[in-house]
């Protein structure tokens, strides 16, 4: 996968992996925690991100800022891929 990951792709991925049930119209800037992202979902997310994007997110990566929106999560994944 050479194309850069963006927020739209992250939303589709969170939905298809059933990590979060995001409503229709959920945008890349909306709050993932308000949409139900909790510590258990974060564990699923880290495991799934390794399979899907080939990134090993570390405990230190898992800050509120990095995970708040699909946009910030996409940025984190891009950074960790390089």
């Amino acid at each position: 996968m050479s194309r850069e990951v963006d927020g739209i792709e992250v939303i589709g991925w969170l939905r298809s992996e059933e990590i979060l049930m995001l409503e229709e119209g959920f945008t890349v800037g909306d709050d993932l925690f308000q949409a139900g992202l909790d510590s258990m979902a974060v564990m699923q997310l880290v495991v799934a991100a390794e399979e899907q994007f080939g990134v090993q997110l570390q405990a230190g990566d898992l800050t509120k800022e990095n995970l708040t929106t699909a946009e910030s999560l996409a940025t984190l994944i891009r950074e960790r891929r390089t």
Binding site: V47, A59, L62
Partner: peptide, 9 residues
Amino acid sequence: RLQLAGMLV
């Protein structure tokens, strides 16, 4: 909590 989750992973 988020980092603890990361440690478990």
